[in-house]
Every structure is written in C-alpha cells, then in structure tokens.
C-alpha cells in the first residue's frame, strides 16, 4: 500500500501525464494536463486560483509552478512549464503517459472573496499568465458574482501568447472585455499593438470598486504600477503574484522570504499594500 501522503508533506502524489501541448511558437513553454493515479488523492486535492504546486521528478528534483486550471474545470489539473533549468528541461522531455510527482496545493490564493460584487481588472504579460488563466475561468464560472471583468494580456508576438483558444473564446464573450496585445506590429495580427502599460493607460479602467491583479515580468510590473496609480488605483486594490527561489514550499527551508514573509506560505499572492511594507528583495 502506498504510504499515506497526509502526514508527510515532502512525499509527492503519484500522477500521470494525460497530455502535453506546445504552448507557444518558440516551444519554450509546454502545458501538462495531469491526472492523479489514486482516486483518494484526487478527492483530497482542493485548490484555489493563485496556488502553486511542486512538480517532482524522481532522480532529478522539484520545482514550483502555478496551477493553470481552475477548480471549476472538472478533472483538469494543468501546469505550464517554461524550460529554464535542470528540472524544467527534464520535464520538457516527458510525454503523455509518463509519470510525475506533485506536492501541493501550496501557498495562498487570489482574493476571490474580496472580488465578489466588484469589478475585476486582470493584467498579464508573457509567461506569467498561468494562474491568471485559472482565475479567469473561476470568475467566469460564477460570472454573476462579479461586476465588469477586463483582461489585458500582452506578449512580444502573437505566437507567444499562451492559451490561444481560451483567449479567443473569452474575446468572443459579451460579458467580459478581453484585450490581447503584442509589442510590435505583426503580419496577420489584427488585435491591439502596444506594451501592456500603454494599452492599460489607453483602456483607462475605472478604479471604482475594482480589484486589479497584475502578473508579468518585472519590467512590465515596474511600468504598469505608475499607470494604475495615475488611474487612481490604491495599493490595497492591487494584487500580484511573486516567485522566489524555493525548495520545500512549506516555510521551512528558509530561502524564499521577503523580509519576514515567506513567498511559499504567506504568498505567492500579495497586495501592493503588503509589498510596499516589505524590503524589495524579490
């Protein structure tokens, strides 16, 4: 009998890869749909958008990844992995049917309760769209609970936008605003062109009763925050998700802290109000 996972937070759930998809045109990101091998594990696994897991390869190691699927998508547990190191390179060699381990869900989640009955502004850039995908699916699943939903998502080229079929489906909905943008004009691209901060400024969403979630590369965050401030957003209305190097994911190994907060336990989701009180160590 498999040892009980419930008492050992370092023991991964055994998983099987159902499907592997190339997510972007330069093949640097692959998306993995996973399934639990034990139905009891699947039953026990409950998560919220914004949380992450450690994906685990025996003999190689572990690395943390945001959960890209929503609990509103039955039977779907999705991760998108950018190749950038030992574990991710090994992950990129795996195919459907291969086995993998998973620890989690870990960390906190996007503030869904706080968003209830409010407008939600989601701003994403590049690869940092994984947990935002989970969030958007959850919001749309309970659409009536929220006000206006606006999503601005940018990448360098059309082929580097993740989750294209989701983006197109959201684009065609009348109960949300989906703005896709690319950095520079591109043959065949008929959508927005411009960097995310510029498109945000032009879109000019109202800060009134709105929660903004901003996830993207540091350079995008740096130039987006002043725009949000100019639009009248306060720090406590703005949330982001951070990544720091981590190992255990459960607040013990001592490397992901920003001041006295641990990204793995207290985060990865932080409000800008919280972050402004912490040292810039991320």
């Amino acid at each position: 009998m498999a040892p009980c996972n419930c008492h050992n937070p370092y023991l991964p759930y055994p998983m099987v890869i159902r499907q592997v998809t190339d997510e972007v045109e330069d093949r640097s990101i692959k998306t993995y749909d996973l399934a639990f091998r034990e139905s009891a594990d699947a039953e026990a696994f409950r998560w919220q958008p914004g949380q992450f897991c450690e994906l685990s390869l025996l003999g190689v190691g572990e690395a943390p990844f945001g959960i890209a699927s929503s609990p509103a998508e039955p039977e779907l547990l999705r991760f998108s992995v950018k190749k950038a190191g030992v574990v991710t390179a090994a992950l990129h060699r795996l195919k459907a049917g291969d086995q993998i381990g998973l620890r989690g869900p870990l960390g906190n989640a996007f503030p869904l309760e706080l968003m209830r009955a409010k407008n939600v502004l989601i701003i994403g850039g590049g690869f940092a769209f994984t947990t935002l995908r989970a969030l958007i699916v959850s919001l749309l699943d309970q659409r009536a609970d929220y006000g206006d939903i606006t999503v601005i998502y940018g990448a360098r080229t059309p082929g580097l936008l993740m989750y294209r079929s989701d983006l197109d489906a959201w684009q065609s909905r009348s109960d949300m605003r989906m703005i896709q943008t690319i950095d520079q004009p591109y043959v065949g691209w008929e959508g927005q062109v411009g960097l995310v901060p510029a498109v945000l400024e032009q879109t000019a969403p109202s800060p009134s009763a709105t929660i903004a979630i901003v996830c993207g590369p540091p350079i995008m965050i740096r130039f987006t925050m002043p725009v949000l401030a100019r639009l009248g957003f306060e720090n406590q209305q703005i949330y982001t998700s951070l990544e720091n190097r981590m190992k255990c994911g459960i607040g013990k190994c001592g490397r992901c802290n920003i001041g006295h907060k641990y990204v793995c336990l207290d985060g990865p989701v932080f409000s800008m109000a919280e972050l402004s009180a912490l040292p810039p160590e991320y």
Partner: peptide, 10 residues
C-alpha cells in the same frame, strides 16, 4: 526506474 513514481517510499 526513476519514472515509476509509485515506487517512491518515505
């Protein structure tokens, strides 16, 4: 067989 995750033991 490192891919056999069920073989991992505490």
């Amino acid at each position: 067989q490192a891919d056999d995750y069920a073989s991992a033991e505490v």
